[in-house]
Design a protein around this nucleic acid. Structure first.
Lengths: 203, 203, 203, 203
DNA sequence: ACACTCGGGACCTCCCGTTGTT
DNA sequence: AACAACGGGAGGTCCCGAGTGT
């Protein structure tokens, strides 16, 4: 076959594998199902990925990583006002969060919970993504401080960690309930806290 | 056999099943391993629990529920000062968190992530525990407000939800890294936020 | 408990066991289901019947045997006109056969098919019932011949065997289709054949 | 492996599965035994047949269907004299019926009794075979009538149903007793009945 | 006469990975 | 680059029967 098809095969595999892993978890996903949905044969899969683990790692790095950077990291990289970015993110989430995200939670969080304790390769790749995420927020906070939009006495790294933790924790509660209530309930408190990060003169 | 043995058998099963589920997740836990570790036979297990699911549900309700009430809920029920309770909890955690909790995260959070999206019976039992937890914190906040130890304008339910979310989110990050750093990093911010819940005159 | 209860327990077991065996076959019936439906415990069952086999044999002898004698044998014993008896039987069947008999076939035939080849104890008990049945018809034919209601040149034993075979064969076709069509289709032919058994002068 | 081996594997599986199902019934047949006898592994079986049910259905359609067409249907299709065909069949059976057929009955009848009431997929496939069989006899009767070898007033469909029912019923009695006696006993009656189907002038 | 507990095996399902071929 | 065929094991379910104590 032409290289085109090879690429397409690989991408189809990644996409469907992501869907399955997102929906059922890595261990509960079966290669047979992924193969059936992609209409790819086992030989082809094992040509592109040496094992189920390799496939999972590729999903993590390429699919979940890309999604994380696009929606959770880039907004911070492009701004020097973390409070504004977060305020808007929260507003968006409470208004129009896709059904899937509500019911199935955060793809990264899911994989982290399932695999961090028992599979070191996954653990490391996930940690790298978490570091990237936390780092992007911290950097944004530092730029915010330089621009006078964030209080000087705030610990940028602490904010990065805290924001990611709250995000992951709320996603977990939301996924458990299957609705957005926990986010809605906590929202005013979150906005208050965000407000408290601003310098006095702006308050 | 005497009924005493039956009780002991059941408890041994629950305890070992909890260990396995906590370590490997529900789906990855094998009844054969649990049986081998407890030195109980399949027949005996099948007598006490009709299925793996029933066993898992019993672990959730009886083992994890008991642990949650003991360590995460009771402190709030016995106090009218949520800020003090949380401050002490945080201090304890940063000082002496058991290795297992660091590496394997929160038992409730783990089950929630693995099963909320795909198994409604588990989802409901887990939701009940989360509700109990959030409710206990909210009640404590209300008592704190009545006692003048918490600002009147604070939304008690929001605090309950927020505290649980932060706890679960930090546990997730901690489990991923395998060390306590995320909690340590976020700690000053958390203490600040807690401080901000107190009435003006106390600050 | 009083002997009353013991008898009642035994009968409840027999009745429910018959239902299960009739519906699912002997091998596919589970003691657990029978126990659940009768609300009897395993200890009680093993007190009355030493094994699953003994229970099945008792169902065969007492429940199925009684049913066979009542509906398939007694009518022949009380008559000296086999043609009339059969004519009425056929009429009854085509008019008002219970749903269960149509869908599940003949209890005796079912057990015979399932167990004759692989379980000699059952085989012998079933053979005894078949012999009783065939014999009753043959005797009736002989009485009919003595009374001048059946042709003298007819082989009574052949008629007994033939009638039972047709009955069992049609029950099998009926059970397969789930409706009465095969009986209805074959009925005219059967009546013709019955008619041919009568002496010339009666025809 | 070469595709030839695949075909051979599949056929070995079908043949041995037929033997086991014929001897023990479908539910009592164990895949493990079939695998052991064919020297095929579980993986290979799972490749060819998705489940035990699929294997059973294939046995029914391919093995039993082929046997039925060869020995029970084709003779009627190739003739316009149903009385002659049946007369010869009966003669053959009473003379030289294989031991296996005597002890184990009719493969189709066995499956029908076991599965018609509880498994609709099997029921339908079996019904199709019965229809084919009954239809072939009825067609033969019609050709016989056209050729003047069968009385015009005979209902061809009734004959088809009746013949199949008698065949199945006698097979059942024979299987139960483990000997040919019921067929031998009923034989004269059967031949008489067959004779009565012929037109007057031929009698 | 009955109840509770347990024993251990056998069942089908299904899974991930490899092999030889095209 | 892809494919069909196969290997071999482990998974949960559930069964029948036994043992022990009323």
């Amino acid at each position: 076959m032409s290289p085109r098809d090879a690429v397409r095969t690989r991408e189809a595999l990644l996409e469907v594998a992501f869907e399955e892993i997102y929906r059922r978890g890595f261990h509960e996903s079966s290669l047979a199902d992924i193969l059936a949905r992609t209409e790819v044969t086992k030989g082809a899969l094992y040509h592109h990925f040496g094992s189920k683990e390799e496939l999972g790692l590729a999903v993590l790095d390429e699919v979940i990583g890309a999604w994380l950077r696009e929606y959770k990291i880039r907004p911070f990289e492009e701004s020097d006002d973390p409070v504004a970015v977060l305020t808007q993110m929260i507003a968006q989430e409470t208004e129009a969060l896709p059904e899937r995200a509500v019911k199935q939670g955060c793809p990264l969080g899911n994989m982290s919970q399932e695999l961090s304790a028992c599979h070191d390769a996954f653990r490391q790749h996930i940690e790298a993504l978490y570091d990237e995420w936390r780092g992007a927020i911290a950097s944004c906070v530092r730029r915010g401080q330089a621009a006078g939009k964030v209080r000087e006495d705030v610990d940028a790294d602490a904010v990065g960690t805290f924001v990611v933790a709250v995000n992951q924790g709320l996603a977990q509660l939301m996924k458990n309930q299957g609705n957005i209530e926990p986010v809605a309930t906590a929202q005013p408190l979150l906005l208050d806290w965000l407000h408290s990060l601003k310098p006095r003169r702006e308050r």
